[in-house]
């Protein structure tokens, strides 16, 4: 199962969209969970959907898998509608749900056999367990499993039907670091097999490591859609920490191109901003005869970008609560 499937692996330039969402709207009563979201997902890519809790991530993927009916907008999964062609789509879309337990006394192997029987062309349940590294719990009852094992069983159930698209919702929440790494390796292997993966997460490191492209959803709206690198570079703040040879005024620092914030802690100065901070700062300070030492630079990352992109909405929300 680790052998890449050449016929279905994506070739740059000839990619076709696996999923296309256009102007999707979903309301729960008066609450608008998803508000005019449009994007498309290419075949074979790992597409991440990130956003704060309650942003509408799960609702969006539940509309793709046909578990929820959109109020307006359209969704196409390989040209099929999740509502009208429900049965056909279920055949090749594997879903791992955020919260769902198996019957307590059902054994792992039995659950996989059962799901395999549901599909037209399933994978071998034993091999799926093997590839997930959980062959040894085949005869264990679900209630005896650890959190990580349950999570892996959940992924196994999403994969045993041999899907072309796998929707994985919050799949590493509650896992220990080792289990998380193991799960990530699994998803990489799914990519190698040509499976299109839609990954819902609120872990930025997970999104950065795994995803080819990310959609950031906040309060039901699509804020950004790009590669993790591009999002981090565009919205993440670079940081430069250093010790100046003599005191420097804030004004001097703010005058440097790209600097947006300055923090001080004893002799240590930290500036935050965009662009190549180190080069421009060192040059500007050298002009004033100031040397810098103990330089520590950190490139903008997705965490910063995430916070920046969701902050405006969050402060607006807290104002609403106060009012």
């Amino acid at each position: 199962m680790d052998v890449p499937n050449d016929s279905s692996s994506p070739t740059p330039g000839t990619q076709q969209p696996a999923v296309t969402i256009s102007k999707l709207v979903k309301r729960y009563g008066s609450f608008v969970a998803v508000d005019d979201v449009s994007f498309s997902i290419q075949e074979g890519e790992i597409f991440g959907i990130i956003g704060p809790n309650g942003a509408g991530k799960t609702t969006t993927v539940e509309c793709i898998s046909g578990l929820r009916v959109p109020d307006s907008g359209s969704i196409s999964v390989y040209g099929l509608s999740p509502q009208r062609d429900r049965d056909k789509i279920r055949e090749f879309v594997g879903v791992q749900l955020q919260q769902s337990a198996l019957p307590e006394r059902l054994r792992v192997g039995e659950a996989l056999e059962l799901f395999a029987a549901f599909y037209e062309d399933p994978l071998d349940p034993g091999e799926v367990l093997e590839s997930l590294g959980i062959r040894e719990i085949e005869r264990a009852a679900f209630k005896k499993l650890s959190g990580g094992q349950k999570q892996r069983v959940s992924i196994a159930l999403a994969l045993v039907g041999n899907p072309r698209i796998a929707i994985l919702d919050e799949l590493t929440t509650g896992l220990d670091p080792e289990a998380r790494r193991g799960t990530w390796a699994l998803i990489e292997r799914m990519r190698e097999r040509g499976v299109t993966v839609i990954l819902v997460t609120h872990y930025m490191d997970e999104a950065e490591t795994l995803c080819d492209r990310l959609a950031l959803i906040n309060r039901g709206r699509l804020k950004v859609l790009d590669t993790p690198e591009a999002i981090a570079a565009e919205s993440g703040m670079n940081r430069l920490r250093f010790v100046p040879s003599q005191p420097v005024q804030d004004e001097t620092l703010y005058a440097v191109e790209g600097v947006q914030a300055v923090e001080r802690k004893g002799r240590v100065v930290t500036v935050m901003g965009t662009g190549d901070l180190a080069a421009s700062l060192i040059r500007a300070l050298a002009d004033d005869g100031v040397q810098v030492s103990e330089i520590e630079a950190r490139r903008g990352n997705l965490d910063d970008a995430f916070i920046k992109l969701t902050r405006d909405a969050a402060s607006a929300a807290s104002q609403e609560v106060q009012a």
Binding site: D87, R90, G94, L97, A101, L102
Partner: peptide
């Protein structure tokens, strides 16, 4: 119980 635990919902994501 199967409904409460999400098992029925889990099954409804399959062709069955």
């Amino acid at each position: 119980r199967d409904r409460e635990s999400g098992w029925l919902r889990r099954i409804s994501t399959t062709p069955v």
